[in-house]
Design a protein around this nucleic acid. Structure first.
Length: 413
DNA sequence: TCTGGGGTCCTAGGACCC
DNA sequence: TCTGGGGTCCTAGGACCC
């Protein structure tokens, strides 16, 4: 028997919410949303019910979505909550109108990371070629794994599902297909706790009827443009010539769209990769003004720089391009960056360079978000060599004279 | 009180080099 | 003096994803 390429996409079901439900099983079957952030719901509960096992905390002790105040978005909604139209990335305020009786819990990142490592470890023991796609998703290459070809991959998928559930109590959905693109769509066909097998010959029947938005790579903007061109399904795209798609969407994107609509994708499962950038950003509780709220902004800015520096240090990276990100009260975004002539992970150096960037951006309107980014990363000790002594690096900009930026601590300020 | 935080990749113009 | 390409890096913005 010849082996055919079989790629799986595994997606944990309502991951953040399911992790919380392990601790609070009394919430099973109820509409629950995870997100928001600022409210320390757990601490609140633990204070009131100190000594009581978490599973015994009465349901009416949990905060309701209708009482939520803040700028957060929903990270995950349980399936009962989704019945009300509530979903991830939705603003909490909007969600509260749709399902006021839902319960709210904050994200527990440590707990989520623990379970993320756990389920990925279990998968790797069964099938070693795993590509990380965030905390709750992976691609797995089934092609050469023993049993990976049986029933198109269903047997191996079942084994992985069962192993994860037995070790963690969490369920997942798996799609197995000839490539990543189709596997990703397939994992959604039978959610939650489902397995879906798709073969190359199924593209017309299973992929073409889907709305264009279902493909990984077509977002809200492209969907809107496709609709304007009267294309609604992937089959509609497949019916267009490559030339027409290139004319309308450009060489790269149009060409990709053509291939994708025919279910063609030869991207490998990438087991290891290096980070390109690290960043920290924060949205304020209320919009802040560069002058009127200078002190508060200055403290936040310095703190963000310190946190990025700490991330770099902890992970063993240095970076060369320092950047800032601002979001104005009208939600417009501005970014500025500056490439240094050396690599750094030093908080004060990052703070200084970010401060220079700050001077090149409009600080008139009020701000809702501030971010700091370090890009052009290299592993500490493996930085590319700088230009030889006596030569001038033509790309390195002249080092600017350092003068304090607006958010800098000032004497007596 | 609409719209979090952490990422990747692409595009496009200008600088600069060969 | 005028006219070229090819290539890389830097920067700003934007689309998209989890």
């Amino acid at each position: 028997m010849t082996r055919i390429r079989r790629i799986a996409h595994l997606d944990m079901d309502a991951f953040f919410a399911s992790v919380e439900l392990l601790r609070y099983p009394q919430l099973k079957g109820l509409p629950v949303v995870i997100g928001g952030g600022r409210r320390k719901v757990d601490e609140l509960l633990l204070d009131r019910y100190a000594g009581l096992p978490l599973a015994k905390i009465p349901i009416d002790a949990f905060p309701l979505l209708k009482d939520y105040v803040g700028r957060g978005v929903i990270t995950t909604a349980t399936y009962p909550a989704r019945q009300f139209g509530v979903g991830s990335a939705m603003g909490m305020m909007k969600a509260a109108r749709l399902c006021p009786q839902a319960l709210v819990l904050p994200v527990d990142f440590d707990q989520v990371r623990r379970f993320s490592r756990a389920f990925k470890g279990i998968i790797r023991e069964i099938a070693p070629l795993v590509e990380d796609r965030g905390v709750d998703e992976v691609y797995i290459d089934f092609t050469d794994v023993p049993g990976g070809q049986r029933e198109g991959g269903r047997v191996l998928a079942r084994l992985i599902q069962k192993s994860i559930f037995e070790a963690t109590g969490l369920t997942c959905s798996i799609g197995v297909a000839p490539n990543k693109l189709i596997a990703k769509m397939a994992s959604e066909f039978d959610k939650p706790n489902g397995i879906s097998i798709v073969y190359e010959a199924d593209v017309q029947s299973k992929i073409w009827p889907l709305p264009v938005r279902k493909i990984n790579g077509i977002g809200p903007k492209s969907e809107e443009k496709l609709h304007r061109l009267h294309l609604h399904t992937l089959g509609d795209i497949a019916a267009q010539s490559r030339e027409w798609l290139v004319d309308n969407f450009g060489q790269a994107y149009g060409g990709w769209m053509h291939e994708a609509s025919w279910g063609r994708d030869d991207r490998p499962v990438v087991v290891e990769s290096e980070p390109v950038s690290m960043s920290r950003e924060t949205t304020f509780d209320r919009d802040l003004h560069a002058v009127r709220d200078r002190q508060e902004l200055g403290a936040i800015f310095t703190d963000l720089c310190g946190r990025v520096a700490e991330d770099l240090r902890r992970k063993g990276y240095v970076g060369k391009t320092i950047g800032i990100k601002l979001r104005y009260d009208d939600f417009r975004t501005a970014t500025r960056d500056q490439t240094l002539d050396h690599y750094t992970a030093d908080a004060a150096t990052i703070r200084r360079a970010a401060g220079q960037c700050l001077k090149r951006v409009d600080l008139g309107p009020r701000l809702r978000l501030l971010g700091v980014r370090v890009g052009k990363l290299a592993k500490l000790g493996e930085e590319p060599a700088p230009p030889a002594k006596g030569q001038v690096d033509p790309q390195a900009h002249a080092v600017q004279q350092h003068t304090p930026d607006l958010f800098a601590d000032q004497p007596g300020g």
